[in-house]
Design a protein around this nucleic acid. Structure first.
Length: 452
RNA sequence: UCCGCAAUAGCUCAGUUGGUUAGAGCAUCUGACUGUUAAUCAGAGGGUCAUAAGUUCAAGUCUUAUUUGCGGAGCCA
């Protein structure tokens, strides 16, 4: 940390074990506080950690002791004190306070040290982020982002940002957010960068996009956001097998990186670390057809609503897309991710290439994570044949003129290529064990909440 | 869009077959306490029971509508 010396006029809590017996100056916020007569304990947090600061009446002046006793939750302070080794402290150190100065007052902090409901906490998301659990999740998120970037940057991938304003649907299925764009009429917020990644892959060979994407679906589930971050690698000359291998490599690297650098966070979050340690190649793989067979052999019925309101439980028919109940049933047998590949073409997007060995299937794959995390990756080998692609665009009823530039990729030196998209928040939710995807992003956007 | 659940103190909740002045814990404030980390003890303040209408001698409680939130389906990462 060479830059630190240019700024450092105070110390950080994470470094305190290096300063035992010495006087330091900390700056932070009062996380919690207890008074016990002539003794006061202040839990100070500064973003790097929490340390207990101790004041004995008599060891400090009357004025300082009095000032400290008036401090309320989340007051920002400057504390000078001596670092002392302390067995009773979880971090191993404590601070004997010499002086304390209030920087900013805090009155009636809403998130008191007691249980709160989700709704209340979401209303106070801007403050909730200060609490230990949310702090830990965000640290892991940042580490996951770094792992993703490191993985691609050090494996010959070039970062190519895709636009957020786009003229038409990427996949033609999901609902899009629209906005007015000067005199050019309506444009849409990107729900994928993939089509652009296909173009840049033809310039650089291996590329990835990493940014926010938007889906105007009113999905009120614990794994959906309307605004989420997605990383999308796209590789020229890769087929579906290469694509699946790469997805495995990426996910293994992310999990192992987090295990290496975020142990304290995972412990605080009470995540089962042994389970994460098992996330190593090879992952499980099965074709869609094998998965359907498994579901029917294990008596996982498809529940269909009839017109009269009754339900019928039927064998899973080949050709139907999996829902959450099927994915969960399938994953219950596994302790590491599973890739399901070669789905029926009819349930998949128009740009996916047909399986030459079975034209009913698309060369598509989804990676499902264990622990009820669900789908974290969706990808495919792309249709590289001009005529086949045009045919599919017509079949889907999409406007051909919107795909002029996309078809050019097939017109000028088309090559086999593949890629996938990985939802960052879904991965964060899975690795941290967060109950809800809302906890996996600092300021979540859901259909019924855009504040704070 | 559809199905289900919920709304009472700052927060989390209880509130009986409808019945007097609305209950607890925590939080806050005051006081006691030299090892607390969910501290403890004593005291105090704090409520238009989501909104509107209806049934009834009487509604937090029953009915209807509305609003807001939550979970799920569909769709997907």
């Amino acid at each position: 940390m060479s830059v630190q010396s240019r700024y450092k006029s105070f110390h950080y809590i994470q470094d305190l074990s290096k300063f035992i017996g010495q006087e330091v100056e900390l700056r932070g916020w009062v996380y919690d506080r207890t008074k016990k007569g002539k003794l006061q304990f202040i839990q100070l947090r500064d973003g790097t950690g929490i340390v207990q600061c101790v004041l004995f009446k008599g060891a400090v002046t009357e004025e300082i002791f009095e000032r400290a006793s008036e401090i309320s939750q989340e007051t920002s302070v400057k504390i000078k004190g001596t670092v002392r080794q302390e067995e009773r402290s979880p971090s191993g150190v404590e601070l004997d306070v010499v002086d304390i100065t209030i920087i900013g007052h805090s009155q009636d902090y809403p998130i008191t040290p007691k249980e709160h409901g989700d709704e209340f906490l979401m209303e106070n998301r801007h403050l909730w982020l200060r609490s230990t659990r949310q702090h830990a999740i965000m640290r892991v998120r940042a580490r996951i982002v770094k792992a993703i970037r490191d993985f691609f940057d050090s494996n010959g991938f070039i970062l190519q940002d895709s636009p957020i304003f786009t003229p038409a649907a990427g996949e033609g299925t999901s609902t899009l957010f629209s906005t007015k764009y000067f005199e050019l009429g309506e444009v849409y917020l990107a729900q994928t960068g993939q089509l652009y990644a296909e173009a840049t892959a033809m310039a650089h060979g291996k590329v990835y996009t990493f940014g926010p994407t938007f889906r105007a679906e009113k999905s009120k589930t614990r794994r959906h956001l309307t605004e989420f971050w997605m990383v999308e690698p796209e590789m020229a000359f890769f087929d579906l097998e290469d694509d699946m291998d790469l997805a495995e490599d990426l996910v293994e690297y992310i999990v192992q990186s987090v295990l290496e650098d975020c142990r304290p966070e995972l412990v605080l979050l009470e995540r089962d670390i042994e389970k994460l340690e098992k996330v190593k190649r090879p992952f499980h793989r099965m074709s869609y057809t094998e998965a359907v067979k498994w579901l029917n052999e294990n008596d996982v019925k498809l529940i269909k609503k009839n017109a009269d309101g009754t339900e019928s439980h039927i064998d899973f028919p080949w050709g139907e897309d999996f829902g959450a109940p099927q994915e969960e049933a399938l994953m219950r047998q596994f302790d590491k991710p599973c890739i399901v590949h070669r789905y029926p073409a009819e349930v998949k997007a128009f740009y996916m290439k047909r399986d030459p060995e079975n034209p009913l299937c698309a060369l598509a794959m989804d990676m499902l994570a264990p622990d009820d995390a669900g789908e974290i990756i969706g990808g495919s080998q792309r249709e590289d044949d001009m005529e086949a692609l045009e045919h599919r665009i017509n079949e889907e009823g999409l406007p051909m003129e919107a795909f002029d530039w996309y078809l050019d990729i097939r017109k000028y030196g088309s090559v086999p290529h593949a890629g996938f998209g990985m939802g960052l928040e879904r991965v964060v939710k899975w690795i941290t064990g967060a109950k809800h995807i809302r906890e996996a992003i600092p300021f979540p956007r859901t259909p019924y909440r855009v504040v704070p």
